[in-house]
Design a binder for these strands. Structure first.
Lengths: 146, 146
DNA sequence: GTATATGCAAAACTTTTGCATCCTT
DNA sequence: AAGGATGCAAAAGTTTTGCATATAC
């Protein structure tokens, strides 16, 4: 499905800001972006776009299931393209890099824990904050931009 | 250990705002409180305190390991007394109530997942967002104050 | 008495909203 | 042509900071 079709499918008109934002998430090496980062990147790419539009589009994409919103540590939300499979996140405390993982056993236990209490899991967020054990870890400090 | 001793242990002077905030977390039926909620509750109790002080003290308590900071869904952070055992959170999507749980199998798998990737888990956050399956769930809507 | 803590006000930062204009269909 | 989308500016909400005063030790 093309990007334009993808937008139409979710009932949104095909506009430049929406296409550029979608394109950014699909091509950026950084998979987790804040609204501010999206705005700065597109502006740097010469796109005439307002920060308010970025916020509106990100929220729309989230509601349509195209993006996932995360609240890692810190104030601002970051967004990520919702690809085929669900996954959780491991955040490196040295460099801030985010690794993704999926563990079937953890998923099953979550459902079980909820069921034991009379609940059914609708969604979940699991973040592991961890230190790299690799000798001479080449990662930059977490505050460094990527 | 008394509350005063607890404060001295972490290198903070024993002041009224700090004692009242600590006392609030130790006695409140609501275990998860935002800065604004702490401020409103203490003000209602007749304590003369500023919102800025609440933020400062909460941050100090977090750094001292007395409180844990959470970013559930939404913008503002909530704080919780760090009691004996670690636990994770199950948030009811009907009423916003937070249930706590601890699952040894999940904890073990988290360590394993990180180890497989060359990391050691320092901290983690796991939130389950779930729907109550109890017939005639008596819970209020999630926006209702508790 | 000295260093720390506080309250208030102002600032900084993130996100949302009002509105006139522009664009998609 | 009509309704939705955009950009800008202003507003709203959360958290931090500057500073004079007050408090703990």
């Amino acid at each position: 499905m093309s990007r334009s079709e993808e937008l139409k499918t979710i009932g949104l008109k095909v506009t430049t800001p929406r296409l550029r934002i979608l394109n950014l998430f699909e091509t950026s090496p950084r998979r987790h972006l804040s609204a501010e980062e999206v705005y700065r990147q597109l502006t740097a790419d010469g796109v005439d776009i307002g920060l308010a539009t970025v916020y509106r589009v990100l929220t729309q994409f989230e509601q349509a299931g195209l993006l996932e919103r995360h609240h890692f540590e810190g104030d601002r939300a970051v967004f990520e393209l919702r690809r085929a499979g669900h996954h959780d996140h491991l955040v490196c405390l040295q460099c801030g890099r985010v690794e993704e993982f999926y563990d079937e056993a953890i998923e099953r236990r979550q459902d079980q824990v909820a069921a034991d209490r009379g609940f059914a899991v609708v969604d979940h967020q699991l973040y592991l904050y961890a230190e790299c054990r690799t000798p001479n870890c080449p990662h930059r400090h977490r505050d460094a931009p990527a």
